[in-house]
Design a protein around this nucleic acid. Structure first.
Lengths: 245, 245
DNA sequence: CGTACAATTGAGTGAGTTCAAGTGGGGTGG
DNA sequence: CCACCCCACTTGAACTCACTCAATTGTACG
């Protein structure tokens, strides 16, 4: 059975059968009362690659969760410079912040990297849901905390790490996220839609330099990206680079 | 009357007379019911420069608000590398996050840059207080949102801006924060305790390079730091550099 | 007057950039 | 089915911003 969900594929009509639901913010509820989620879900929609899901400054009307495909979470300047804060994978919540501060403008934009399918909930329903049980409340709290930890570690990466170190860190992080969602193939590779341009914008370096760094790590047998798939060949070395540089 | 509060000076016994209170997270309550704050305050303490107020991984027991002095909010690596996420000024809350996720370990450390005086509140009291009125709730929500915006803009700075641009951005931000707290002297200068080393760790560059960049901006007549005070000479130029580079 | 720490300056190096040209695969239209 | 084009990726060469190492100056403090 294929663990990878094709980008843009719509979710099953019943959330009970959704293979991603257990990994979402409402995972605890799925286990306890799966029907609740189906009832609250007010939208399922496919968004084509490149489309903007949310523009910086807009006030998010709904909370969306990604079912299939990858998205970007970024800040753009008029002169073309862009900083990608993170990639969003199946199971991730768009604008987790919006749940905490509804009615406040988004501090960044979100766009689809591949074709994407999303499930929508009203903000109020989501808030009620997330405070519905102890387990659910804990999960929500942990998720917000992780977001903050994540931002701080990215701050550290961008400020103090070399291109190699940042790249290794990013790959390691994505690996971990892909693994927990059961999207890792048996041979240790996984679907990797970002272009070198996206990596550059995430790492704060140029595409040319991403290319060279990638080539070096490939030559060293650490990991490689080929045909839209990433394979880690030497996880130990990867960890070391991510940790030390 | 002096607007600047001497680092390490203890707050007045009554919060009603505190000149910083209106700018804190509990500002709305100070206006409506100043006595409430005095009653909840369970600690006032002086901390010497260099002392650690909170270590990464610790679980914060109280919420502290700075009355006088500056503090640092940072992440340290064993090999000496450090990334300062931001500076904390009088009126700022230590671990605003702790209010949102009590009982979770701090994702970074906080240490006193100068002598510092702080007021302490129990986490539960603070949470109750912050949800005590509509105005208070809005203020809290806005503060958390600003924190997030701030982290995102720092991410952008570190990723995509030159040393000059980052420095200008930082100075501009600190200026704004100092101004709103009424700590700006009439001649447009203000007390600036950070050493070049701190700026380096905040900006993700070396002290040597901070020094050169600072020297260049001084030569250009944009701003200068002298005798622990920062004076902006050409705010227009500063804005332009901060915005464009 | 010595010590200590912050700021400054110089010289050499290196990581990452810019500009520019070339490769290769996949899709499309003739 | 081939020619063409487009896009992502790749490579080279020159350059520059920022780093490292190291020495010097200035300043506060005992």
């Amino acid at each position: 059975m294929p663990r990878e969900i094709e980008p843009g594929k719509l979710p099953p009509s019943s959330c009970r059968e959704c293979q991603i639901a257990p990994f979402t913010i409402y995972g605890p509820t799925i286990r306890e009362a799966p029907n609740k989620i189906c009832q609250l879900r007010c939208e399922t929609r496919k968004v084509s690659a490149g489309r903007t899901l949310l523009r910086e400054g807009d006030i998010p009307q709904k909370i969306h969760v990604i079912y299939s495909g990858w998205a970007l979470y970024y800040k753009q300047l008029s002169d073309g410079r862009r900083q990608i804060a993170s990639f969003l994978l199946p199971g991730d919540t768009l604008m987790l912040e919006a749940i905490c501060f509804p009615r406040l403008p988004a501090p960044f934009s979100v766009k689809a990297l591949t074709d994407v399918a999303i499930c929508g909930f009203t903000t109020t329903d989501m808030i009620t849901l997330l405070h519905g049980s102890d387990a659910q409340e804990r999960k929500f709290s942990r998720a917000r905390h992780q977001l903050l930890r994540f931002l701080h570690s990215r701050l550290f990466d961008l400020g103090r790490r070399s291109a190699r170190g940042r790249l290794a860190q990013l790959v390691l992080e994505l690996c971990a996220r892909v693994k927990t969602r059961g999207m890792m193939a048996d041979d240790g590779s996984f679907s990797f839609p970002p272009r070198q341009e996206h990596l550059a914008d995430a790492l704060g370096i140029t595409t040319v330099h991403v290319n060279r760094t990638l080539a070096q790590l490939r030559r060293e047998g650490v990991f490689s990206i080929e045909g839209g798939r990433l394979s880690v060949h030497d996880e130990e070395a990867l960890r070391q680079i991510a940790h030390e540089e």
